[in-house]
């Protein structure tokens, strides 16, 4: 964990929130082991050892024998920063609980299955940069109208308009707050493009949201 992380106590990420990804996987999700598509937001945590900051290096993953992992991937999301205790709030009032917005990158091993919690793929040290700052909530009119763009070594690799999310920012805050009480400073990464971007050792990754900023990190291992 980096001492100056912007995250306080919890970073909740939402997987499978890209409509086109859900549509593409519908056949798969009707088969074993899933049996039916998800009826609720699909959530995972990036625990504190993963938290990292703008400008920092992201470690290249190792396999269980200590060798460099063959591949890694990155997704980027709008990060919603909670401003006050958020317990069982409605969708209509949910955005009132937001202090501000930031960007979350999720570096991981390529994901092959959504059946079990992906501890090996997602809990890598330094793999969750958050930043570059928290912009105040009142500077963003409509968070669902933002677009997240990922560049690798200056080349645009992925564009994700949040209008393509299956569930909106407000709906997610509400639904999560009915599972767990959220505290000030906790962050929700509300959705990633279904296609994660492959990265290589030494790559420079920039994730940009207009009005929120650009989060820049470099992969280690080079």
């Amino acid at each position: 964990m980096t001492a100056n992380t912007l995250v306080s106590s919890k970073l909740v990420c939402v997987a499978l929130n890209d409509k086109s990804q859900l549509a593409a996987l519908e056949g798969t999700f009707n088969e074993a082991p899933y049996k039916k598509p998800p009826t609720q937001p699909v959530l995972y945590y990036k625990p504190r050892n993963t938290w990292n900051v703008d400008g920092a290096e992201v470690e290249w993953a190792k396999d269980f024998d200590g060798n460099d992992a063959p591949a890694m991937a990155v997704g980027a999301s709008l990060g919603v920063v909670i401003g006050q205790e958020t317990c069982r709030v409605s969708q209509a009032e949910a955005l009132e609980y937001v202090r501000g917005y930031t960007i979350v990158c999720d570096f991981s091993l390529p994901e092959e299955s959504y059946f079990r919690p992906d501890i090996k793929g997602k809990c890598l040290d330094t793999s969750a940069p958050v930043g570059p700052e928290i912009v105040p909530a009142d500077t963003i009119d409509n968070p669902d109208a933002l677009t997240v763009t990922v560049f690798v070594n200056g080349e645009r690799k992925n564009v994700f308009p949040l209008a393509n999310m299956q569930r909106s920012v407000a709906e997610l805050i509400s639904k999560i707050s009915w599972i767990m009480t959220l505290q000030p400073g906790e962050v929700i990464a509300v959705g990633f493009a279904g296609e994660r971007v492959p990265v290589a050792k030494g790559d420079r990754v920039e994730a940009t949201i207009e009005g929120v900023g650009t989060l820049t990190n470099t992969l280690g291992g080079a």
């Binding site: 909740v12 997987a15 049996k35 945590y45 009480t181």
Partner: peptide
């Protein structure tokens, strides 16, 4: 649900 099972709704409640 069969996504990241056991999912947070089962195991992360206050």
């Amino acid at each position: 649900e069969n996504y990241y099972r056991p999912n947070l709704r089962v195991k992360s409640r206050d």
